[in-house]
């Protein structure tokens, strides 16, 4: 006797009649993850990512100094170091070696200068020279790595007990890691926007243009550009001169994004970042620059109000 195993309907017809059962509870857990992110982020008024298409342009330095500038304005600020493999925000803020405190409410972020709350992969590492290494064989299949990093970012958004914040600044890794901006946009649909860091170099601005267009493609509004290493600030006479040749104004105009400010190369700032001794006061001209950029960001985020007031 033979039994016919041929289905009487095609798969599309069969599926149209069935209701998907989440009996393995995978979808439920993914929904729970999303809700947890929403719950945490709901207590943060403004969320901004700092990004660039290029590495080495000073994203982390910009993030740290913007955080300080906002904190000087009296805001409660958090910094999320999304550069999982090259976290350096803690070092710049003098917070190397600090750890999360795991509580039933989540991971309490270490608090740094001016009350800035910081979350970074660095807080999980054995020491400041230890690389981020994941369990799992890269030889068998490293395909899982992107998904793992996305879920680690999701945990950074969902599991940190930030409390009430006026602003969360997220320092993204270089643009080559093209999955991070869409991951952030996906997790944070209410993201206020991206601050894009560039330098006066045609090579950099070419790549930065791509990242601005890419950010828009994935639904991240671009708040504006910051040109870093924009000239050299002489520590002796205070004179500022060009270090490289660039034209960020025309790039900003072409892309129709505001130029938020230009930050000159400043030896003292560089040394302070390396040494974990951030500039806390606005006394230095370079710190004042970041105060001005912070003001412009506030203006850009509140542009409707400004238009209403001034038009």
């Amino acid at each position: 006797m033979s039994v016919s195993m041929a289905p009487s309907h095609d798969l599309k017809t069969i599926l149209s009649k069935l209701q998907f059962p989440d009996d393995a509870q995978v979808m439920r857990q993914i929904v729970d993850h999303t809700l947890q992110v929403k719950m945490r982020m709901g207590r943060i008024k403004r969320k901004i990512v700092v990004m660039s298409g290029k590495g080495g342009v000073g994203k982390s330095m910009t993030t740290v100094n913007l955080a300080l500038a906002f904190a000087r304005r009296g805001q409660t600020v958090g910094v999320l170091d999304v550069d999982l493999n090259g976290p350096c925000v803690p070092k710049m803020l003098g917070m190397s070696g600090r750890r999360f405190e795991i509580t039933p409410d989540g991971a309490a972020p270490p608090v740094g200068p001016l009350g800035i709350r910081v979350a970074s992969m660095d807080f999980f590492l054995r020491d400041e020279h230890a690389p981020v290494r994941w369990k799992g064989s890269m030889e068998l299949s490293p395909v899982w790595l992107g998904m793992l990093e996305m879920n680690v970012i999701r945990e950074f958004l969902a599991d940190i007990a930030w409390g009430e914040l006026d602003l969360l600044l997220a320092d993204l890794p270089p643009g080559a890691a093209a999955d991070k901006p869409p991951a952030m946009a996906n997790f944070l649909p209410e993201l206020d926007g991206a601050v894009v860091v560039t330098t006066p170099s045609e090579v950099t601005t070419d790549v930065v243009r791509k990242s601005v267009l890419y950010a828009r493609d994935v639904g991240i509004p671009v708040i504006g550009l910051i040109e870093n290493m924009s000239g050299y600030h002489c520590p002796h006479c205070g004179h500022e001169s060009d270090l490289f040749v660039g034209n960020v104004e025309s790039v900003a105009a072409d892309l129709n994004v505001p130029l938020l400010g230009k930050i000159p190369f400043d030896r003292e700032l560089s040394q302070r970042c390396d040494g974990g001794r951030p500039m806390l006061e606005s006394a230095q001209p370079i710190a004042k620059r970041f105060d001005d950029v912070a003001q412009r960001i506030v203006d850009c985020l509140n542009f409707r109000q400004i238009v209403a007031d001034t038009l």
């Binding site: 750890r99 999360f100 405190e101 795991i102 509580t103 989540g106 991971a107 992969m121 999980f124 590492l125 054995r126 230890a130 981020v132 290494r133 994941w134 369990k135 799992g136 793992l148 879920n151 680690v152 945990e155 950074f156 599991d159 940190i160 007990a161």
Partner: peptide
């Protein structure tokens, strides 16, 4: 628990002095 995936998957997690 907070960061369970990150902590379980970090290769050096066992040596990380997390509370």
């Amino acid at each position: 628990e907070a960061f369970e995936l990150t902590r379980d998957t970090l290769k050096d997690g066992a040596e990380c002095p997390v509370p």
